[in-house]
């Protein structure tokens, strides 16, 4: 497993959120874990976005999983940064994308599809959901 890059949000001296992009063979896994509650997540995640744009085009990826199962909360200030991360993955990775999400989480069921831009046929046709129980 190779860690390509990661981003982290610190709050009051503690890590409250991190996203990691890692490669296992030709399988790209992008994980989201923790909570996004701060006012301006770009303050912490802008370098991660830039790094994703830099490293993803060079990878050989046959399969991609974006995993939200351990993202416990996202305030509305976090929506755009989630969209930017996901958009970067879709832009640079060919083929299908599996999105893991929590079955009984309102934001992951209702708002996440909007953030993934599933209204676009080109995105929807490449996307499948894997529904999981809250961990």
């Amino acid at each position: 497993m190779k860690i390509l890059t990661y981003g982290e949000i610190m709050d009051a001296g503690a890590s409250v959120f991190h996203s990691v992009a890692k490669l296992d063979g030709e399988r790209l896994l992008v994980t989201f874990e923790g909570v996004i509650r701060i006012d301006n997540p770009y303050r912490y995640l802008e370098p991660y976005l830039q790094e994703l744009e830099k490293v993803l085009p060079d990878q050989q990826v046959a399969e991609c999983v974006i995993d939200f199962a351990q993202l416990r909360f996202c305030n509305s200030n976090g929506f755009y940064v989630i969209m930017d991360i996901v958009e970067s993955v879709y832009r640079h990775v060919k083929g299908n994308v599996t999105v893991r999400r929590v079955r009984d989480d309102d934001w992951q069921q209702e708002t996440l599809p909007i953030l993934l831009n599933l209204d676009e046929d080109a995105i929807a046709s490449r996307t499948a959901f894997e529904e999981v129980r809250a961990l």
């Binding site: 006012d39 509305s76 929506f79 755009y80 309102d106 934001w107 708002t111």
Partner: peptide
Amino acid sequence: IRERRPQRLKGGLGLIRLVAEN
């Protein structure tokens, strides 16, 4: 979201979210 995203405009989503999502 589509309209406000280009400028990353804060606010304007919270109340909508409470009805649409929750």
